[in-house]
Write a protein that binds this DNA or RNA. Structure first.
Lengths: 149, 149
DNA sequence: CGTTAATAGTTAAATAGTTGAACAGTTAAA
DNA sequence: TTTAACTGTTCAACTATTTAACTATTAACG
């Protein structure tokens, strides 16, 4: 196995990361469908895993301004997917939770995505994909350090 | 090294791919700047590498409708980054090329991105990152098969 | 206490990107 | 030559985003 130089690796990383991102998004869009946009699905996933959360928390996790979260939550609230509940002790705070409908829609879409990703992963040698994911997770940590934190 | 089951790998892949995508976009947005959106930069890169291309070609590569390309190209054309030239033989076709200004802007931003990615890659063992990119490229091919063609 | 700071979230205007449907102009096929 | 296919555009509607101004609430401190 020859040793490509750094510039070659950089070029290939830029090309492949863009390509995979686009193709994965297309695949989810075309094969999952589900009336949810990517961002909406990720939002539902975050709230589902957190149980409940605030707009500020979402804004920090997704690295967007709070007003963007307000707009997105409002759209999902209008569709009956998300509930807003004011904190009784600190009345500035609004807790976001999934409605039953929101949870059902999320679980259904998430299940399809799991099947899709599993079918992709199964086409690899397990040791290879495991190593891949571990390096991916390292990269995620490095990116956390490079950003604000 | 223990063997995690498939479900665990699927969960981790979904989580980490989303996280890296968001963080990488933030990093580029915050550290590159450049007056170009991500999509605009990718469009300039594609045209730069192709030399010239058509709207239909971009629509297929980016997997969006042609009207989305028209809108994006028009915005960049208004900023003087892209030229439209009708084909003299087949007057339906419009060739897209970078203007001098478009090329300069692209090269400047691309150079910063290269430096950024290089600084990330340098934090890894070279054999590890090389293997990572190779698996990433395999994944890209698998995704190509899973999509339209 | 009362004024000032900070915090949580919203609103509004602007921009980017997207789809779907209808359309114009051009070329190819029957 | 009429019909079909292709290339690209326009328009209306929508999602996502930023910036700046704003409301309401809580915290700090002199």
């Amino acid at each position: 196995m020859s040793m490509p130089d750094i510039k070659n690796l950089v070029d290939r990383y830029i090309a492949v990361s863009f390509s995979v991102e686009k193709k994965a998004a297309s695949l989810v869009k075309n094969q999952i469908g589900s009336d949810l946009t990517n961002d909406q699905h990720f939002t539902l996933r975050y709230i589902n895993q957190a149980g409940s959360c605030t707009s500020s928390e979402l804004a920090e996790v997704f690295d967007v301004k709070k007003s963007a979260i307000t707009a997105m939550i409002t759209r999902m609230w209008e569709k009956g997917l998300i509930q807003r509940t004011r904190d009784e002790n600190d009345r500035r705070v609004v807790y976001l939770t999934l409605t039953e409908k929101g949870n059902e829609l999320y679980v259904k879409a998430e299940d399809k995505i799991h099947n899709l990703v599993e079918s992709l992963i199964n086409r690899f040698d397990q040791a290879e994909i495991q190593q891949f994911i571990e390096t991916f997770e390292k990269l995620d940590k490095v990116l956390s350090q490079s950003n604000g934190q």
